[in-house]
Every structure is written in C-alpha cells, then in structure tokens.
C-alpha cells in the first residue's frame, strides 16, 4: 500500500510543476486536476475517504469547471499562449525560486527535527466528521456559510457587465418629452 502513496505523491508533484510552468491555460488546468486527483488518492490512503470524495467532487469537479468556464469565456486562445511565452522568461524564475527554496528548506528543517511519527491507518468515517462539524465547530460552520454567501453575492456583483451608473444627483436630465 505504501507504494501507492509514493506514486501518488510523485504524480502530484510532477503535475503541479507542469501546471506552474505550463504555457497553455487549459493544459495547465488539466495538470492541476491531475494533481488534485492524486492528492485525493493520498487522502484515501490516509484514512479520510470522505475528504477524498469531497476533493474529487468539489475541487476537481466544481471549482475546476469554474476555471474552464472562465477560460472559455475570455477565449484568449493562441494569442494568449504567445503572450505567455514572452512573459515567462527564465530569468524571472530566479527570485521566486530562491524564496520558495529557502522556505522549503526551513520547512524541511522543521519536519526533520522531531522523531519520526507513524501515521495511523484508522479510517475515520464521514459520520464522525459530521458529528464533530455540527457540534464542536458549529460556529465556524456558520461563519463558512457567511463566507460562501458573501462569495456568491460578490461573484454575482463583480461578474456583471459594467453598467453606466450615476449617482442620483449626477443623473442626466431626462430629455423633455
């Protein structure tokens, strides 16, 4: 079973790297979905089948579909690809690469410091998650609901085509009939 973890981890890393370095937006999106799916495999292996299902349904499903729609709508096409090619020069990688590498090094140092901890394989049933969610974390659930509502309203508002809207005092005089 362990071998599955390593394979999934490798695929996730490779796919994410391809996604970040990719030129074509749709290709990158597909790589991202691959990455998410392999992470969901890892979730399954770690005994969280409910989360694995959510990852597939919501992340790889719903959210990515949103991306696809937006990319479709904007329809930058091959001109966008060309532009990306010009923008993505090797020299731009230096600074972010160094910063990320340092951050990674420090995380690695933190991880290697304590003794190794084996992970349990106990499967945690969705019922247990649900029970915890609606007892201990009920307040946060409500807050998450607020957040989602805000997201919906915000997305609706921002997604509208820009209307020429005047303050009522700035409204042009109605033409005389």
């Amino acid at each position: 079973m362990n071998i599955l973890f390593y394979i999934a981890a490798l695929i996730a890393i490779m796919a994410t790297i391809r996604m970040v370095t990719g030129i074509n937006a749709v290709h990158s999106l597909l790589y991202l979905i691959v990455s998410l799916l392999s992470v969901s495999v890892i979730f399954f292996l770690l005994g969280a089948p409910f989360i694995a299902a959510l990852e597939v349904i919501i992340y790889a499903g719903a959210i990515m579909v949103l991306f696809v729609f937006v990319i479709m709508m904007l329809n930058t096409g091959s001109s966008g690809v060309k532009k990306e090619h010009e923008l993505l020069k090797p020299s731009t990688w230096i600074g972010p690469g160094i910063t990320s590498a340092i951050l990674f090094g420090e995380m690695l140092y933190v991880l290697m410091h304590p003794a190794a901890h084996p992970m349990t394989r106990t499967e945690i049933q969705p019922a247990a998650v649900g029970a915890l969610l609606f007892s201990k974390y009920i307040l946060i659930v409500e807050l998450a609901a607020f957040l989602l509502a805000a997201g919906v309203i915000g997305a609706y508002h921002l997604g509208q085509k820009e209307k020429v809207s005047h303050h009522r005092y700035l409204k042009n005089e109605e033409p005389a009939t």
Binding site: A12, I13, T16, I17, V20, S35, V39, W93, P96, G97, T99, S100, A101, L103, F104, M107, L108, L111
Partner: peptide, 9 residues
C-alpha cells in the same frame, strides 16, 4: 511543503 512551495513559486 513541496506542493506549497511550488504553488508559491
């Protein structure tokens, strides 16, 4: 950590 750093980059 690896995924996070790749995302950051």
């Amino acid at each position: 950590a690896i995924l996070f750093c790749i995302g950051l980059a």
